[in-house]
Design a protein around this nucleic acid. Structure first.
Length: 532
RNA sequence: GGCGGUGUAGCUCAGUCGGCAGAGCGGGCGGCUCAUAUCCGCCGAGUCGGGGGUUCAAGUCCCUCCACCGCCA
């Protein structure tokens, strides 16, 4: 491992939720960037997990006649299992019911209390159980009253003096100490902070909600679920990562390089979390990146619409690699995009089957039937421009990928791919192959073109491994790459890898078979229910 | 209502400092035959949302209107 460190987090997902495309999206992105840095010898810590406290969990458990813990023990496996199927390489999976997490939350709350950042005050108002928060908007209250979704509550509450940090937070964002991306989200937060910032209720009386972390200074209250949840980013480092000094609250990876979040939890992260960190006298995360939402066939995905996409079904149909590629390639990270089965099939067929898969197929086939080795040699003017083009594309790819510009980065790499297909088309190695007995120059060019194409494919396999770890490993092996691609580490900034046939070249199965759009089933919950 | 954003080809979008409107996909035509009906080449009469202004020159800068989106209220 190198000296450089990189810490990235996903949100911890609410354990009651059935994992859907949105969860998968954030986690795929975090995994891709984690793998990207690991291959460059950066010491990466990639954290995900589940948020297991709160009233909704307690209610769901009660409805199933299970203890809360048993309920969570069972449900959190949905996430673990999905991440395994998606080849997610998280270094840790935190659960907020982990005893070590709860201890650390208590320690943090104690520190806030001792620091004078928490005060008690009576509070009364309309409380929404489903949102786990007080509702202040009058029209919203009326609406929810009619729906029976709010109750009037008067209780003692503990408040965090969030308002004290407003100016400092604005300063941190404006100075770049805290980067919020994309810019539109940064503007949103700054806009929000133009209004006076209130204090944050951080407690719920146990009489109403017992399922949470007890306040160490008021044992008849539990901690507001968001405060408990946000602290996971620090508490995980303390006890899930070996080598963390026991006497500090966060560990060697803090501050996080990226908190990846959905745009719905922008305020909790960029305002609540950051001000809590200020009160705890901890450094702020370096960057918070709020990505966009997927719509499904043009419509917002929601349980009530019955059009929530289960990633497991997508993996069944297309495989984890294709799904990962699609998620990162289809829309710019940070913007909204549409998920449509037709678009997915189009993307897979065009980019993966036709461009990449077929290039691999034609190169592997030519080489495999001709002895199964690449002939070493130096490039000439025939291939040097293509190699230069690849190197330029690779450099752009790395720059954009590191900045989470996955779609742009991938598009750029596909330009190099097209140039390689063109090189083969233009030089016609299948013809050179026949002519080489009479014409040594044809033989030399044949060797050079195959070597260059193979090298670019192998280089692409390495560059694309963070996105498609499964099939790129297969491609690597097919080309005779040494060792496992998962263990490959770049040396220096060289990205064009001279292919060697150490492992022997094999044609193998098609990397990404073309998909017949007519054979693709529906992927929504509704379709599933109908078929049951 | 306040703040911000978006509007460019059938679709998704790129267009830097103002300088002859671009890419990918889909579609059409042609070529190749190593390859996964793949690959390569060619094919664009787009009011750059409408209107006005600045300028030798505006997709780009300014004003205004319309539509949609986000955050706040």
């Amino acid at each position: 491992m190198g000296d450089e460190r990189f810490y990235i987090t996903t949100p911890i997902y609410y354990v009651n939720d059935v994992p859907h495309l949105g969860h998968a999206y954030t986690t795929i992105a975090a995994d891709a960037i984690s793998r990207f840095h690991r291959m460059r010898s950066v010491d990466v810590f990639f954290l995900t997990g589940t948020d297991e406290h709160g009233q909704k969990v307690a209610q769901a458990a009660a409805a199933r006649e299970l203890s809360e813990q048993a309920h969570c023990d069972e449900l959190h496996e949905n996430f673990r299992a999905l991440w395994e199927r998606l080849d997610i390489s998280n270094d840790a999976f935190i659960r907020t019911t982990d005893p070590e997490h709860k201890e650390q939350v208590k320690a943090a709350l104690r520190k806030l209390w001792d620091g004078g950042w928490i005060y008690e005050q009576d509070y009364e108002g309309w409380y929404s159980v489903s949102e786990e928060m007080f509702v202040t908007d009058d029209t919203e209250i009326e609406r929810l009253k009619a729906a029976g979704k709010v109750e009037f509550v008067k209780e003692s509450n503990y408040f965090f003096k969030m308002s004290a940090f407003q100016d400092r937070l604005v300063g941190a964002i404006e100075s770049g100490e805290l980067v919020i991306q994309p810019d539109s989200r940064r503007n949103e937060v700054l806009g929000f902070l133009r209004q006076p910032l209130g204090d944050l209720s951080i407690s719920r009386p146990k009489s109403r909600l017992g399922w949470g972390v007890e306040l160490p200074f008021a044992t008849d209250h539990v901690c507001y679920v968001w405060v408990d949840a946000l602290l996971n980013y620090c508490t995980a480092l303390r006890y899930l990562n070996d080598g963390t000094p026991a006497d500090d609250l966060y560990g060697p990876f803090w501050p996080a390089d990226y908190h990846l979040i959905g745009k719905d939890i922008l305020t909790t992260h960029s305002v609540y979390w950051t001000t809590i960190l200020m009160a705890l006298e901890l450094p702020l995360p370096r960057r918070i990146f709020a990505h966009g939402w997927w719509t499904f066939e043009g419509q917002k995905m929601s349980k009530s619409m019955g059009n929530v996409v289960d990633p497991n079904r997508l993996i069944d149909e297309f495989g984890a690699d294709a799904l990962r590629y699609f998620a990162l390639r289809q829309m710019p990270f940070g913007q909204d995009g549409d998920f449509a089965a037709a678009g997915l099939v189009e993307r897979i067929n065009s980019d993966l089957a036709n461009d990449l898969g077929n290039l691999a197929s034609r190169v592997l086939n030519l080489v495999a039937r001709d002895g199964g080795t690449f002939t070493p040699g130096e490039p000439t003017a025939a291939t040097q421009p293509v190699i230069d083009g690849f190197n330029a594309a690779a450099a752009d790819f790395e720059r954009d990928f590191a900045a989470l510009g996955f779609a742009t980065a991938l598009r750029r790499l596909w330009e190099a791919l097209a140039a390689t297909n063109k090189l083969i088309q233009d030089t016609e190695p299948w013809r050179l192959c026949k002519e080489r007995d009479e014409d040594p120059a044809a033989g030399a060019l044949y060797d050079e073109v195959m070597r260059t194409s193979g090298s670019i494919l192998q280089s692409l396999a390495a560059l694309l491994f963070p996105v498609m770890p499964g099939q790129m490993s297969v491609l690597w092996e097919s080309l005779g790459g040494e060792g496992s691609l998962a263990d490959y580490r770049y040396a220096g900034d060289r990205r064009f890898l001279s292919v060697s046939s150490a492992g022997g070249v094999e044609k193998g199965e098609a990397l990404f078979p073309r998909i017949d759009a007519k054979s693709v089933p529906s992927f929504t919950e509704r379709a599933e229910q109908q078929s049951e």
